[in-house]
Design a protein around this nucleic acid. Structure first.
Lengths: 212, 212, 212, 212
DNA sequence: AATGAATGAGGCTTCATTCAT
DNA sequence: GATGAATGAAGCCTCATTCAT
């Protein structure tokens, strides 16, 4: 087999792998980890059960890869967006907004990341914890920076970061589970104000932030 | 069969029903909805599978009843405690504290209410939503009262209530899932300050609240 | 439920269990351990897959029980028959004859015990070894007795017992695997003479044994 | 493609085939027929699954070829060694010793030949039978020669040959399956004496055989 | 009321074999 | 000749639910 055709084969395999990941994403999001059948994933990926197992040794490993890469993408996106701002408060604003609007635009992704992983078994506990930690850590880092810069008074940044993430999380999840989902972005101004005010940011600074 | 013996029988049946609920509570908390086997519940209730199915038509119904009664008890407890305070801010303080410390004292209950129900299938979505709504509603009611009393400025109480509950929820869940769980109550002062400050409560009023 | 009906239930359950063992015996004998499907066992036992798994936690456990009880029965039978004779040489004769004729009469049992268990996985190695050991031990005991009684000269009874059992085993297996199986019993006189002579029994004593 | 390069290619192909046979030997010996995966054989032969299937149409055919060639080699070796002796009794001694010591030195080969083939399915029954027949036939031929030479009295050589092979077989298999395998050769003197004496060889002749 | 045996659909995984490149 | 991706049948096992007693 020549270099070229081998490349073609690899490329096809890679695409198949992606198709499986896409299908798995869809099925997991819709039915949860336990409820998702490998058979159904194979069907939606237009391949066979064996095909799925050729690319992923286990249902679990498939889910884990999904969990990781999806989270990776979101975290990277948030950091990329936040890095554009120099003012710590503006950064926090951008970070919150990015998460909220990304979830709002990808309801299925939100389900996978925030809902399905819970209750999928102890193997995912660690991964989920890492996920929450990454987001909370992101927030905490910004808060600490703001404390160092003298913009806000010293406080338990870890706890506050958890609280912020929790507030965000709850609002997204409620939106996800609501039978009549309101526009997620509408809640943003209130959420932003409450959170920023909560760490002691001046009302004037909050008012100065761009409208969303 | 006489009146008396029927009474005795009914009483025994009621007790059996309670034993099943207790066992189910335990098993669901430990293994999640999907992971919990009816066999195991029956075993822990010292009865048979058939016994469980005599009292509950379905595994689902058993879980739902558990969800409802547990939530009922907690909501009632929170309202009872809050009613003792006349000042709206003190009430919010008491409510937050009650939830946090109750969860802290009943880790299993927290798991059941906050973690297991997710991913248990679409049937529980509605119930879970009602649960979150009840807690958020509780908070929202206090916030509205505070607005009416002129203690805080008008704001979107529904969204803020969700954010508050989310902050609380996240902190409890993180504590639940943490391998090395810190003392949950330790985070309370920070949480309280951030939340109250977030809705514009004077720093002096916050400082005046009792230590926890 | 009264004493009587409970007894009826237990009795039925016991019978079902036996039916499953019988079916398993049949299927294992015909197809070997790996080749035997639980589904097929259930079908032949006129029950369901779940029914099989109610009585036996595992395919393996089912096979093991079969192996053990079948061997138990045969060993017991051999010892019972041998105990009737007082002369050690006559005992050896009876023991050999009992094994050979029992196998001859129960071809399927022979297959299960001597053929199928091999290659059924490492779990059965121990069990099979125990089985061979039991038979070899039986023989060795008689040989030792004969040595003590001065009937045969001292020798390595363990090795000889293995050799005897091996000779027997091979002859049975060859008969089992032969496409055109001769009458197994026909080989007996030759086998008996060779084995007894091999440990130094007088030709006259051998000739004195009853014809078979 | 020229003559030369075709020759080179054929040579390479032959070598690959050998590598596959070696790997298959190793895997079958270790895991048994059913337990051996073609994937694993390909891996150990440093080729691909497709590669294996190019050289052998079937997993079964691969195993059969292995069975045959291995047996061929052993039978040839035994005959070669035996041919060196002129005395029939010495020949029998050499034959027994060759089999025993070859197995002792190649535990894996023994497993393949004596253990794995059983339970590998009905296809191998015939082959296995032929294998045992060849060995028994070898022994029987020597016995018949000894009868003709008047060294031993006439007897049913076929049955005796089976018994001899069985004794040998059992001792090897017990050694194979034993957790704490003794030195196989240690049992040889006893085995030899018992077998030879069993066909009526004079004690003096047995004593005259070389020590092993 | 209670028991526990029985059912059977459905789940995850393995693996011999095929085939396009 | 060789590769490795793909197929799909088949296997073992779990478990919610039913039902005769």
């Amino acid at each position: 087999m020549g270099e070229v055709s081998r490349g073609v084969t690899q490329e096809r395999s890679r695409r198949r792998r992606e198709r499986i990941l896409d299908a798995a994403f869809h099925v997991f999001s819709g039915l949860g980890y336990r409820g998702a059948a490998v058979d159904e994933i194979a069907r939606q990926a237009e391949t066979s059960k064996g095909g799925v197992y050729f690319h992923f040794p286990t249902k679990e490993s498939l889910f884990l890869e999904l969990l990781r890469t999806t989270a990776d993408r979101l975290v990277a996106k948030v950091e990329r967006e936040a890095a554009r701002e120099s003012d710590p408060i503006a950064r926090a604003d951008v970070a919150l907004w990015t998460v909220l609007s990304t979830f709002a635009g990808h309801r299925t992704m939100a389900r996978l990341l925030l809902v399905d992983a819970i209750g999928a078994g102890p193997v995912f506990q660690a991964e989920l914890e890492r996920l929450h930690e990454r987001f909370a850590g992101l927030i905490a880092a910004h808060l600490e920076r703001a404390v160092e810069d003298g913009i806000i008074a010293p406080l338990d940044t870890a706890t506050v970061a958890e609280a912020w993430f929790g507030a965000l999380h709850e609002i997204v999840v409620r939106w996800l589970m609501a039978s009549r989902p309101d526009v997620l972005e509408r809640t943003y101004p209130t959420l932003r104000a409450v959170l920023l005010r909560g760490v002691g940011i001046d009302e004037s600074r909050i008012a100065a932030l761009p409208e969303r």
